[in-house]
């Protein structure tokens, strides 16, 4: 039986990590999964390292601690890897999605799957802004299978008005297809 799965999102203040956690959880809930999303509570400043978390389970989640041993990690900004041990606690067989246009030169823990995607370029193309959270949500949907693309699109549409939703959905779709292609 599949039990609790956990996601940790690393980003910088202003990149929408908390929104990403929320929308991923909304999409999971829409798919019939019990989900719980919350930020690492802190004094949020633009550019400062931030974290947000999502738990997925087939039953009610009671646990209230932060996420220390995630199954999935999303890194919104690869420059964080220098400052923060973003891989900390990752489970064996876990999946890491890193937003970077370059190949990773950092040591990757053994037994984990790393997917790199140039989410900044995808976001710039569709949104005209380097805000990568919706793009990375699409990548997460493809890599993890935790959320379906239509559910994610629904969550985005619920959050953003008309054209802005269309643009974010286009970014999420491109990332989804890209990750499906490489994995």
């Amino acid at each position: 039986m599949i039990s609790l799965r956990e996601l940790r999102i690393h980003g910088r203040g202003g990149q929408g990590s908390v929104t990403a956690a929320e929308l991923i959880a909304v999409a999971a809930f829409a798919g019939g999964v019990y989900a719980q999303a919350f930020p690492a509570f802190g004094v949020e400043r633009r550019g400062a390292p931030v974290q947000a978390f999502v738990r997925f389970d087939n039953q009610k989640v009671r646990l209230r601690s932060q996420v220390y041993e995630p199954d999935y990690i999303i890194v919104q900004d690869s420059t964080l890897i220098r400052d923060v041990n973003v891989f900390q606690g990752l489970k064996k067989g876990g999946i890491v999605i890193v937003n970077t246009e370059k190949a990773l030169t950092y040591p990757i823990p053994e037994g984990v799957k790393v997917i790199t995607i140039d989410a900044t370029s995808v976001a710039l193309k569709h949104l005209g802004l380097p805000i990568t959270n919706t793009t990375l949500m699409g990548a997460f949907a493809a890599a993890s299978g935790e959320i379906a693309l239509p559910a994610l699109e629904g969550a985005i549409r619920q959050r953003f008005p008309g054209e802005l939703a269309d643009k974010n959905i286009a970014a999420a779709r491109e990332a989804f297809e890209f990750v499906k292609g490489v994995s």
């Binding site: 959880a25 809930f29 989900a35 719980q36 999303a37 919350f38 930020p39 509570f41 989640v61 209230r64």
Partner: peptide, 10 residues
């Protein structure tokens, strides 16, 4: 505070 107030759940 935060642990419940800022958490999304059903």
């Amino acid at each position: 505070g935060f642990i419940l107030s800022h958490t999304y759940e059903p």
